[in-house]
Structures are given as structure tokens and as C-alpha cells.
């Protein structure tokens, strides 16, 4: 039989031993449970795809940029559509011609001048062939013959 301090030590030792035994048992149960869980999960078909961290990081950077680009692509045309000022007659009059308009005007001017010059051309001179040989008034030989007849 044990007394005093020796009995207390014995009791503490028993408690510690019991605690260690419980702890060891709990750890063993935990191991068994984790093995069971892993076996079950290994048998289950896997659906999720692996995602490399680098791709994820890249996606995080690109996603806001892409969203901003799409937003700009949609908002800018909508904004310009609703804030577009309709062109009035006054505006059209006051509008300065652009380079393409100037070129068209130059071409038109040249054409108009050409037509004008052809229409207002002077009577052909003597050296120029007659436009209508059948016209007797314009035949130079018959005029000369008429002059000769008058002299006679």
C-alpha cells in the first residue's frame, strides 16, 4: 500500500497514462477515418479541372481590361448616337468644303469651261474647212465665181 506523496505521484502517473492512451486512440481513429474518406474520394469521379495559379492570375488581370474594352465599345456608340446634332440647311451652307469637295469642284469647273468654250467658239476662219460643204453661201469657189460674173 502506498501513502502520501508516493500515492499522489502514482495517481498522476495513471492519469497521464490514461490521457496518453486516449490521445493515441484518438489519433488512430483519426487516421482510420482519413483513410476511409480518401478511399471514398478516390473512387468518386473527378469533375473539376485543374487551374494553374498563373492562369488564374492572368485571368484576374485580363478580366477587368476586357470588361472595360467591351463597355467602351458599347457606350461610345450609344453616347454618340444620342448626342449627335442633326445637320441643318444653314450648316450645310456654312460648311467649308473638304479636300474631296474641292477636287470635285475643280473637275466640274474644268468641264464647264470646256463646254462653254466649245459652245461660244468664233466663226471659223478662211483656212478652216467648212463645217457644212452643202451650204452654197459658205462655198468659197462659188463666191469667187459670183464676183467674176458681176465684173463682166
Amino acid at each position: 500500500m502506498k501513502f502520501g506523496r508516493e500515492a499522489v505521484n502514482q495517481s498522476e502517473s495513471d492519469d497521464t497514462r490514461e490521457e496518453v492512451r486516449e490521445m493515441a486512440e484518438a489519433l488512430s481513429l483519426y487516421r482510420s477515418a482519413m483513410h476511409h474518406l480518401a478511399e471514398r474520394e478516390a473512387a468518386r469521379p473527378f469533375a473539376a479541372e485543374p487551374r494553374p495559379a498563373r492562369t488564374l492570375r492572368l485571368r484576374l488581370i485580363l478580366a477587368p481590361a476586357l470588361t472595360a474594352a467591351v463597355a467602351a465599345g458599347v457606350l461610345v456608340p450609344v453616347y454618340s448616337h444620342f448626342h449627335h446634332r442633326p445637320t441643318t440647311v444653314t450648316d450645310a451652307r456654312n460648311a467649308q468644303p473638304g479636300p474631296a469637295d474641292v477636287r470635285a469642284n475643280v473637275d466640274d469647273t474644268v468641264l464647264m469651261n470646256q463646254i462653254d468654250s466649245e459652245l461660244s467658239e468664233d466663226v471659223p476662219d478662211a483656212l478652216r474647212p467648212l463645217a457644212d460643204p452643202s451650204d452654197p453661201g459658205t462655198n468659197s469657189s462659188s463666191v469667187l465665181e459670183k464676183k467674176d460674173v458681176a465684173k463682166e
Partner: peptide, 11 residues
């Protein structure tokens, strides 16, 4: 080795 690696990562 797959079961073992999976078990370690799962735990």
C-alpha cells in the same frame, strides 16, 4: 501512389 497523395492533400 495516387491514393496516398490524395489522402495527404485531402487531410
Amino acid at each position: 501512389y495516387r491514393p496516398r497523395i490524395l489522402r495527404f492533400l485531402l487531410s
